[in-house]
């Protein structure tokens, strides 16, 4: 009878191994899909950067470049959102999560590159494709204000399709994120920066944010 248990044990081990083979495949498929999405985001940012650099270098007409940038910018921001959602599911669904940290870092990098490009376009073309809000938050420490601020931003964006939020955790070791935060003197979380303006630390209500949105946009128009 002990024999039966041994056999069952080995059969179980074999089945679990086989199952893990499939689990690994599924997890890899997801990781590959995400990697492809991030690569494509980075590629787009890089090519756009080249276009700006080249146009500036040659002193060519900026009109065509700027209209191209504004036509693609919103779609790219939406794709960045999609990716962030996928990464969230990736973390929940994957059993083998070895790639998670790397993918997360690359995602933040790609998102930062997108942000920098949007700001470049704003400077270069005089007006950006949309109003940007930089949002710095904390993940490691408990930060209820960050959660509350995130909810407020959600609702701001819902009411205004011309606003995009770029969210970054400031309690990580990503150098480019730390650079962004330092550049805006954002030392605490939550902090928000509207259209490269002054940093607003602490929790702000929807009304407060809405109040500065149009005025800041108007100033930029000058």
């Amino acid at each position: 009878m002990a024999n039966v248990y041994m056999k069952a044990f080995f059969l179980t081990a074999a089945i679990v191994l086989l199952a893990f083979f499939f689990i690994n495949q599924l997890d890899l498929m997801r990781a590959t899909d995400l990697q492809r999405g991030i690569d494509s985001m980075l590629f787009d940012s890089e090519s756009e950067r080249l276009v700006y650099a080249y146009t500036q270098l040659m002193g060519n007409d900026t009109q065509a470049v700027c209209s191209y940038a504004s036509s693609t910018a919103k779609a790219r921001a939406t794709r960045a959102y999609e990716l962030s959602e996928k990464i969230r599911y990736f973390e929940q669904s994957n059993v083998v999560n070895a790639d998670y940290e790397r993918i997360k870092e690359q995602y933040y990098l790609a998102n930062a590159a997108l942000y920098v490009n949007v700001q470049t376009a704003a400077k270069y073309c005089g007006t950006g494709p949309y109003t940007t809000i930089l949002f710095f938050y904390k993940t490691r420490q408990d930060c209820p204000e960050c959660q509350a601020q995130g909810a407020v931003l959600d609702s701001v964006v819902k009411g205004n399709s011309n606003v995009r939020v770029f969210a970054f955790p400031i309690d990580t070791d990503y150098e480019f994120v730390n650079m962004l935060a330092r550049g805006h003197n954002a030392t605490s979380a939550p902090s928000i920066v509207v259209n490269e303006g002054n940093v607003l630390s602490g929790l702000h209500s929807e009304d407060e944010i809405r109040a500065i949105l149009p005025s800041v946009t108007a100033q930029r128009g000058k």
Binding site: T78, Y81, S84, E85, I87, R88, K104, Y107, I133, F135, Y137, T139, C146, Q147, Q149, G150, A151, L153, D154, V156, V157, K158, V165, A167, P169
Partner: peptide
């Protein structure tokens, strides 16, 4: 109490 803000802070818009 929206909590999903590891990644999609301010991103659940659409």
């Amino acid at each position: 109490l929206p909590f999903t803000y590891d990644f999609s802070a301010g991103m659940t818009l659409t």
